[in-house]
Nucleic acid binder design. Structure first.
Lengths: 329, 329
DNA sequence: TCCAGAGACTTGAACGATCCAATCCTGCCC
DNA sequence: GGGCAGGATTGGATCGTTCAAGTCTCTGGA
């Protein structure tokens, strides 16, 4: 077993002081060219790697981000987080940071965890997902001056903190436009109950597109909880009306899947679109709006590292989703 | 902003020395009852939290595990990792450990990352997923005495290192038995090509169950790559044979989903079972074998902490899956 | 010739915890 | 009351790094 290689080992090997080695690593410009080269050679010859714990103790920075991993509520949405996490880890790595996971059962519990992580690990920042109106977590973090980025806009006040989000309205607008282009006129929307930021945004995309086409009157809306059964029930009720829709835009793949079940044996085929492009959508051929998750994760890391290094970057990023056409629309 | 609370602050507040505070935390039994209480009170009054970096520098242990997060290959399997990760984070937390993520593009890259993580962060251990025959990663780690556990058996030599796994053969046996119980006699298996540990194991469960029922001759097997299209093609070919099966056990949900497509409009309904109980299976009502992922994650953490604390625990854990009945079988 | 000043590198101290060895109690026995 | 054993408590050293304040060398101008 090789003994430990510290900065002192490297210093001896390159015949300089510890501090010079440190400078080569952290402030290369103040070291003379030739010395720098000699130190670099010693570093790679010995396989030296700076000890994070020691560095952290002195600088107070850990080069560590934390992200919450959620308990895969409904199963369908889980994979969104999965893909986001992968992107996050990859980009953070490239920027010299690592990602740490934590769980929490509610907002208060999560805040307690923040405290824990900051106290024990000197965490550099947090990436929060799924924020909603009046989120106590962002308030807590902001009060303490802890750097964080949310994946998801703060719906109350877009200026309140840095965020990255995907333009949900643009996504449903694309889906609606596609349906209009393929000849549909009566296009329904199955969404969540009013009041959720994300849900209202996605509904708005459909509503404005329909209005722009002068089809305000042919746009029935249904609000319900997420879930396959709920989607199926709402769609059945829509079909039972006097003037049933020939197409439906859904706020999630779960609801879309339910809607698909309801229209399985209608006389005239009914077009259906979903949202999130989950594996389920891919598997059953459901046309769905796809979020650029890897890109979103990358921008989150960019914002966070920007905050930490004091570099001013535009703190509000809105990305455009794309419509993935399959055979349901 | 509150100033930093260190072990010295607590010591002053409780009128004892630093060492006594440290003993209260790390060896409570050697401190007098009353003193211990006084220190504990000071700790919670001040909101003290031991600085991990300082502790780590002295002890050489980071209380950190690393897990690789994979790029969601086929999309369907992604959620398995997702659920596993959540369980891992939760159990590790309870044991006083944290989970760190990393990515890698191949085995060599992953080994380089091990080196990095060990050098810079003094990682305490690794949890590896998806090992296969002759895995270079386990060899590398074992040679250096780095603690690790794999989720998945080492198929070459089950004794070579600690592992947790789910009994795939038992899973497919359950599925096969269910089909036999519901009256099927000619039951096919769509699996992966021979040679993969996991695939061979799952096939064995079906084969032995069929043999035990004296139905060796009514058990056609097909090996193919994973993927929906492949499942569909294999199933079509099976249906086109002289004596087509009335039921099929599949090695994965992807293949099962393909098989389902092929049997959508057969005269006699054909029963289908999958493996992994992915969200896709739940969504479309596919009967599937479900792995106890949270339990598996928990056992992984148990094994790893056991290794670190020098506590001898049985290093080989085989868990039983359960068959989730839905309406395809 | 001498000194100011800049540049390149070195030295001592500190971060916050734990380990180690020495010291201080306390109660007990003679 | 003195001696002693045993456990509780104390101070100092240490982990590997970076910060702050040095030292040394060289150049150029008076």
């Amino acid at each position: 077993m090789a003994e430990k290689v510290t900065i002192a080992t490297v210093a001896r090997h390159a015949r300089v002081s510890r501090q010079t080695v440190s400078n080569v690593l952290n402030a290369p410009h103040i070291v003379r060219e030739e010395t720098r080269r000699r130190v670099q050679e010693a570093i790679s010859a010995l396989g030296y790697r700076a000890n994070q714990a020691a560095r952290q103790m002195r600088t107070g920075r850990s080069r560590l981000f934390a992200v919450r991993i959620e308990p895969t509520r409904d199963g369908i949405n889980g994979s969104v987080l999965d893909r986001f996490l992968h992107g996050l880890t990859e980009t953070a790595d490239a920027a010299g940071y690592r990602v740490m996971l934590y769980t929490a059962t509610g907002d208060d519990d999560e805040i307690a965890t923040f405290d824990d992580l900051l106290g024990a690990y000197d965490l550099d920042g947090f990436v929060l997902t799924g924020t909603d109106h009046g989120d106590p977590r962002t308030v807590w973090l902001a009060q303490r001056g802890v750097p964080f980025v949310t994946f998801g806009r703060p719906w109350d006040d877009p200026e309140s903190h840095p965020w990255v989000d995907v333009d949900g309205a643009a996504g449903t607008a694309q889906a609606t436009q596609r349906l209009l282009d393929t000849g549909h006129r009566r296009i329904a929307f199955i969404g969540w109950p009013e009041g959720s930021g994300v849900g209202d945004d996605r509904r708005a995309g459909w509503r404005t597109t329909m209005a722009a086409a002068g089809l305000d009157g042919a746009a029935p809306y249904r609000g319900t909880q997420d879930g396959i059964e709920h989607g199926e029930r709402e769609m059945r009720e829509l079909l039972a009306t006097d003037d049933p829709p020939t197409a439906v835009v859904c706020v999630s793949d779960s609801l879309a899947l339910g809607a698909l079940r309801a229209v399985r044996d209608t006389a005239v085929p009914v077009a259906v679109t979903g949202f999130d492009d989950t594996p389920v959508a891919a598997a059953i051929g459901l046309t769905s709006v796809s979020q650029p998750l890897a890109a979103a994760a990358g921008r989150c890391v960019e914002l966070l590292t920007g905050l930490l290094d004091g570099q001013p970057t535009d703190p509000h990023v809105l990305l455009s989703p794309t419509l993935v056409l399959r055979h349901t629309a």
